[in-house]
Design a binder for these strands. Sequence first.
DNA 1: GGGAAAATCTATAACGTTATAGATTTGCCA
DNA 2: TGGCAAATCTATAACGTTATAGATTTTCCC
Lengths: 363, 363
Amino acid sequence: MHLLHRGAHDMVLTTDTPPVAPPDSEVERPTLKTIAAATGLAIATVSRALKDAPDIGEDTKRRVRETAALLGYRPNRAGVRLRTGKTNVIALVLSTEADVMNHTAQMIYSIAAALRETAYHLVVMPYFRDQDPMTPIRYIVETGSADGVVLNQIMPDDPRIRYMSERGFPFTAHGRSDMGIDHPYFDFDNEAFARLGVRALVERQRQRLFMIAPPREQSYSGHMITGFADEAAVQRARFEIATEVSSDSHSEQMEAAVYRRFQSGNPPDGILVGSTTAAMAAVNGAERAGFHIGADFDLVAKEAIPFLRRFRKEMLVVHEDVGRAGDFLARTLIAAIERRTPEAGQFLDKPEHLGADDAPQRR
Amino acid sequence: MHLLHRGAHDMVLTTDTPPVAPPDSEVERPTLKTIAAATGLAIATVSRALKDAPDIGEDTKRRVRETAALLGYRPNRAGVRLRTGKTNVIALVLSTEADVMNHTAQMIYSIAAALRETAYHLVVMPYFRDQDPMTPIRYIVETGSADGVVLNQIMPDDPRIRYMSERGFPFTAHGRSDMGIDHPYFDFDNEAFARLGVRALVERQRQRLFMIAPPREQSYSGHMITGFADEAAVQRARFEIATEVSSDSHSEQMEAAVYRRFQSGNPPDGILVGSTTAAMAAVNGAERAGFHIGADFDLVAKEAIPFLRRFRKEMLVVHEDVGRAGDFLARTLIAAIERRTPEAGQFLDKPEHLGADDAPQRR
DNA sequence: GGGAAAATCTATAACGTTATAGATTTGCCA
DNA sequence: TGGCAAATCTATAACGTTATAGATTTTCCC
């Protein structure tokens, strides 16, 4: 009875008439013309009937929908796109510099899952070391090759966000900038995470805290540093931030930096990091210097894929749900593209309690 | 002097005339019509000139190319697609069941890198647990929404490969099937890997070999089992294959299976696995049972992202280069789509020697 | 210098869709 | 019964591209 013309993969379905098996071999794909011929209506009428226009009679609509379903009609994307300018494409623009143990696949899967019942396709456009991050953005906006863009690796002052905001091009960001532009985003609350981590360490009587921060040019680096420094001050704990390395440095370098730090006079007893690789490197560095996690120090980390507890069960881990991010980003982006009910475009994901078995789960 | 009309992201460039900065605000995007008006030529002439047709004069071509570059002309994808049926899209169809420490991001990055200087876009279509793997394939072929498809997770008898082969739809596979259809693929030689691993274990005086095999429905599972069983026989070592778990089981289950096996009467002293997660689970299980890697047993694993040596430096690791796979798959697929010189469409990637520091690097 | 062949260009139609204005039919009321 | 409005449908044009057949110009040879 109902026609979902954006059912799974553009499928046209009726509940009473199952879509016919794909016509055996060299049958032409049906178009509006085919349906028009089959029903004796004009092409324009068929078109309007399928989009439920008010000036088409009810039984005409029914007839059209039925034959459309019968023939397995699916709108031709190129035709629609040429005529309307709508691409039905979402572009995911990614830096390839992401974490090795990266979020990328999860992000892609969750966006794709959110697009499943829609007519949107997902185009992935990574940009590389040697490229200006603006290049793919300009390309997309200038050529209109997508209806909307999902960004990641957001910087406090991000030219991509400025550019798209100015032009009113629909986009949404995994992370938030800080330049007085109120843009849609999904962000993990890294400040809250850092505070949570510091408190957990202090509760374990750790008083000399050490952190490997994310690369400074990323927005969330600032958030994490703020939370770390601020909460450490509140808790009256000593704290320091690694200067030679950030969490996107090579593992070897992070490990070496932590090793040196532990070798030195006044070794830390609590570590906070924001990535899987950094966590592993830190543990390896500390252990090489003769210190043991759980005994001589504790470590709080954040990760997207449950993993670190398998590396060292003493690890204190906060889960960052990238799937939730992708889902939210896709949904709000589509809402923006289609100018539907302006559902809240911003979301700050609060970290849950730490995941260690022996961690004080509630306060 | 030269026009690359499929330069980076469809960019039109001349060496002497740099592309003009994007016209400031509400300037219409140039089309063939714009160029025709600017040069006083017919639209058809401009079109033919831009594709270097033989019946257009040399200086006309030059003039057209120059103004095209000047205006920043880029062909409208919808127009081309509607007229020619060519989508300039490559679809990557993925199972979301992939390894947690997955290859996916690397695969996507390397395909995208190979597409950089072409006019192709990469559309990623994951399919989910509840979906028939044929669904996205049928969708793509029936609606013609891509010019070619890259598949992964290949099965020995793979209906997707059968379907696309029968219809002559361009595709290429990461992995190979075994049903008498000679299709393009890039595969890692898992049989050779298993043989290499067995020999490395035997060289270390390991005589009771144990393997966690990939899920049986995957092609490469058979290859790996063949290599393992066969080489073990040749080397006169005992061997067995885990029955309750495969390398896509949950970590906990793999760990438990290995633990039980080590607890039992006659524990293994050599382990072979094909994934990062399986390797970690195996080590954790064995250690929980009181056995130590390097001392009581050795373990050979294969992984795409250098990582396991950071988990246990005694690990014997073979590197599987997913980037190389993606690059090859993209290039051969495009060659097939464009029916260019049929460069060899099949590649079997031989494993290199093991990567342990104390491993006998050369036979 | 005439004519044919080669070189170069153009007009037209078509791909599948939708917006628009207009055409036709129906219903209703005076 | 006439007339007008509402309801329903249709013809046309346009989006940007390319294939095709044909038109025009130039070149060359006898």
